[in-house]
């Protein structure tokens, strides 16, 4: 298979997933498109030695995330917001919370998280990666990813349901 076919195949296979990841990070269509294009641009320059599709996809996510972090470092509009260590319990959704969700609300809630929590949470929701794979993509220890997802999810649900530490109305496990 020629490199050009590889590249086209790679783009068509992954650009949507990458865009969704990028959009969940920046919540801006043009910035997300730029991140995806820049990611593939870097691939075109030096990523062709990766022949395995799954490795390639992880590589693309890692590269896009690095670009995102670089952009964050250059933009003061992404202040680091430390989540408190004492998150307490994750908020529990009440009756059929999924039905009340809308894309805008989810993205807005995600955007309000600091970048360090946004990226693992986006991969957690968007992709079928294991925690270990997410850690590899984001280049952080497994424990860090686990805690960021846990805290990030707590904060996200809190924003979506507006109920920190709420109990499950239909009788959750006690």
């Amino acid at each position: 298979m020629s490199p050009s076919v590889d590249f086209e195949c790679l783009v068509r296979s992954h650009y949507r997933d990458l865009y969704h990841f990028a959009f969940s990070l920046v919540r801006n269509p043009s910035e997300a498109s730029d991140l995806v294009q820049e990611t593939f641009h870097i691939w075109a320059k030096k990523g062709t030695q990766l022949r395995e599709q799954r490795s390639a996809k992880s590589w693309l996510f890692t590269t896009l995330h690095r670009l995102f972090l670089q952009a964050c470092r250059h933009q003061t509009r992404f202040p680091e917001i430390e989540l408190t260590e004492a998150q307490g319990e994750l908020p529990d959704a009440s009756v059929d919370p999924a039905a009340k969700l809308d894309s805008e609300a989810v993205l807005k809630a995600l955007e309000e998280l600091d970048p360090g929590h946004r990226a693992p949470l986006a991969l957690y929701y968007l992709e079928d990666y294991s925690y270990r794979e997410i850690a590899g993509i984001l280049e952080v220890p497994l424990g860090t990813v686990q805690s960021r997802i846990s805290r990030g999810k707590a904060r996200l649900l809190e924003k979506l349901t507006g109920s920190p530490g709420a109990n499950v109305s239909e009788g959750g496990a006690k």
Partner: peptide, 10 residues
């Protein structure tokens, strides 16, 4: 699944 589908529906 609800949050996932909202993010993927962008």
């Amino acid at each position: 699944q609800g949050i996932r589908s909202q993010l993927k529906d962008v």
